[in-house]
């Protein structure tokens, strides 16, 4: 089914929207989740959560590209899940527990600031990537957006793993310089 028709189903509040989304994008979304979590069960749950999130957000949202929209949701949910799980592990240390407790005191103040900063940072990274040659920016996105393994990203771009490694290394350096120049303190 065409993306437009699936989106229409969401707007009509027709539950077939989720069925059609799953039929078309489940593997794609599962791959994104797996790249983050490396756990089939957690990834499956994240994908299901993504369907629910899409159901909750469309409407009012009307995504231009459904795959990109869903991918972004799955990525975010998977990262949140990953952080939640790793935070649980860190709680084993009293030091990290204390740190987390203290961090809650400044969280309220930080959240708004961080969200704004992340938005600005995101815009800067987008600009940086747009200035890069197509091959390089695609490699960067595959590695740091989709979290493809280095070998997988290199293969998808049709280059050797070593070359991909070198390109990414140079891009990270260039990005740091660019962000520092733009006033982002890293």
């Amino acid at each position: 089914m065409q993306d437009e028709k699936i989106i229409e189903l969401y707007f009509e509040r027709d539950e077939r929207a989720i069925e059609e989304t799953a039929a078309k994008y489940e593997n794609y979304l599962f791959k994104i989740a797996m790249n983050v979590l490396s756990d089939r069960e957690d990834s499956r749950e994240c994908v299901n959560d993504s369907y629910f999130a899409a159901w909750e957000s469309i409407p009012p949202a009307r995504p231009k590209g459904l795959s990109g929209y869903l991918g972004k949701i799955t990525r975010r949910i998977s990262i949140d899940r990953y952080r939640y799980k790793t935070r649980d592990k860190r709680r084993e240390s009293e030091y990290t527990v204390s740190l987390d407790e203290l961090s809650e005191c400044i969280e309220a103040r930080e959240n708004a600031e961080v969200a704004a900063e992340v938005k600005e940072l995101s815009g800067a990274i987008s600009k940086f990537l747009q200035r890069q040659p197509k091959e390089k920016r695609i490699l960067f996105i595959m590695r740091y957006y989709f979290f493809d393994s280095l070998s997988e990203a290199a293969e998808n771009c049709g280059i050797s793993e070593n070359k991909a490694k070198k390109i990414l290394f140079n891009m990270r350096n260039s990005l740091r310089e660019y962000l520092e120049k733009e006033g982002f303190l890293l």
Partner: peptide
């Protein structure tokens, strides 16, 4: 934050890679 920021880059860039 960088990870989050990359997750929020222009959709066109994501679509291109996809």
């Amino acid at each position: 934050d960088i990870i989050d920021a990359i997750g929020d880059i222009d959709e066109e860039l994501i679509t291109e890679a996809e």
